[in-house]
Amino acid sequence: MFRRFSRHIKEGFIGVGRHFGMAISSSASVTIALFLVGFFLVITYNLNLIAKDIEQSISLSALVDYNITSQTALDTLEKQILSIDGVKTVEFRSKDDEFTYYVEQYPDIREFNEYYRDQNPFHDAFLVGVEDGNELETVKNKIAAINGIASVHDGGSNTYLLINALEKVRIFGGVLVLALAVLAVYLIYNTISITIRARDTEIWIMKNVGAKNGYIRAPFLVEGIIIGVLGSLIPIGAMIALYLYAFNRSDGVILGVFNLVEPYPFLLYLCLALLGIGIIVGFIGSYLSVSRLLRNKR
């Protein structure tokens, strides 16, 4: 069993050695793909952290019609809002509170303002916490449709823009990474196809004396995985070095307010992810290639 295993590994390395140029160029494609994957993961991960910060502070304020004053009516409204999907918290603010809040923002003219408390122009209001920034718009519309709500306000359109932008970055990055992974799979597929052609006598013999398909397949899979792993080494090293440098240089804070993700354990996961992608890409590329060969002939 062990002898057989080491045999496959050995054959895999021999395969890489035999077509070193090809192996290196497909490794290089894995390297490029993983570099971008790495950068992209770092950026999205950090953007996610920022987005969470922002989303946590996202809330809507729903103003109540002036003519609703009874406690029961207000309670019903609160329940209605709370029952909407995506609403996390609802907090009541009486128009008195609102007025106080307003007054306290301008301490210089407090006296002057207090004079008008009787003619308070504010509405009673609900402060609504939303679970997910993406749902802000729908939740807002739903609340506005409730009878007894005069209007709904949010922190402004900038919040939307930022959330939408983050979403777009995520989608674009995902597509880019996927495309690169497919390209790497394709290049590995080609490399392994060439190795296979170079070994067609061996394969012919193995098939003819009744070697199992798994046995025939194994060295090529090993070869594909070696290429994938080789391709992931440089991006892993580079990501560790660059991120640590950026983190230390900036003291973990960018643009003065946003925190960077702590290097540990984030970098560990990042490296494992890159290595894992390298292995998977190598495996898929060689698996497809060998399968085509084994499928053609019984």
């Binding site: 098939k207 003819n208 004396v209 009744g210 070697a211 199992k212 398909n213 019984r298």
Partner: peptide, 12 residues
């Protein structure tokens, strides 16, 4: 298909 290899061991 999966049985073909074993079968082939009967034939040179």
């Amino acid at each position: 298909k999966s049985k073909v290899p074993m079968y082939r061991r009967n034939i040179g």
